[in-house]
Simulated assay, not measured.
Amino acid sequence: MDAGKKKKKKESRFSFLYILGGGILKEDFIVKHTRMIVLIVILVFFFIGNRYTCMQKLREIDRLQQQLRDVRFEALSISSELTGNSRQSQIELLIEEQGIELETAKNPPYELYK
């Protein structure tokens, strides 16, 4: 009869209701290593939180890199537009459109030396 009780106790030891009901917390292994289990659970929570923070920072880095690309493209566009508008032919055309009476110099500029 003792062998049957022990076998039945071992079978019921790992049943779903035994674990869910909290009976597993009375086991000798769990009682002896409670501090270690608590430490492991705390470390697991710490690592999960750390991973979540890292993922947020990576998303922020990606967003900022995209914003940097957009700003660089805009600066390049503005620079090329400025270069196009500052050409002599473009300036002469704008002067004619505005009706300003200016002419280009017929003589080259002089360089003065001491």
Rank of each mutant, 00 (worst) to 15 (best):
M1F: 14
G4W: 09
G4K: 12
G4Q: 13
G4D: 13
K7T: 14
K8T: 06
K8P: 01
E11S: 10
F14H: 14
F16A: 15
L17Q: 11
Y18P: 01
I19K: 12
G21C: 03
G21S: 03
G23F: 02
I24H: 13
I24T: 06
L25D: 08
L25W: 02
F29A: 12
F29V: 10
F29N: 09
V31P: 00
K32G: 01
H33K: 13
H33D: 14
T34D: 07
R35S: 09
M36S: 08
I37V: 12
I37Q: 04
V38A: 01
L39P: 00
L39W: 01
I40R: 06
V41P: 00
V41S: 04
I42M: 12
I42E: 11
I42V: 13
V44P: 00
V44Q: 00
F45H: 05
F45T: 07
F45V: 04
I48G: 02
G49T: 02
G49S: 05
G49L: 02
Y52E: 07
Y52C: 02
C54V: 02
C54K: 04
M55H: 09
K57C: 01
L58F: 04
E60A: 10
I61P: 00
I61A: 08
D62G: 03
R63S: 08
R63V: 03
Q65L: 07
Q66P: 00
Q66Y: 05
R69T: 11
D70S: 10
D70T: 06
D70P: 01
V71H: 05
V71Y: 07
V71R: 06
V71Q: 12
R72G: 02
F73M: 05
F73Q: 06
E74N: 08
L76V: 01
S77P: 01
S77D: 04
S80A: 13
S80T: 15
E81P: 00
L82D: 07
L82K: 05
T83W: 07
T83P: 01
T83F: 09
G84K: 06
S86L: 15
S86N: 14
R87N: 10
R87T: 14
Q88M: 13
S89K: 04
L93K: 13
E96H: 09
E96M: 11
E97I: 11
E97F: 06
Q98W: 14
I100V: 15
I100S: 09
I100A: 08
L102M: 14
E103M: 12
T104R: 11
A105V: 04
K106G: 15
N107T: 14
N107G: 01
N107H: 09
P108M: 11
P108N: 14
P109K: 02
E111L: 13
Y113I: 15
K114F: 10
K114A: 10
K114L: 11
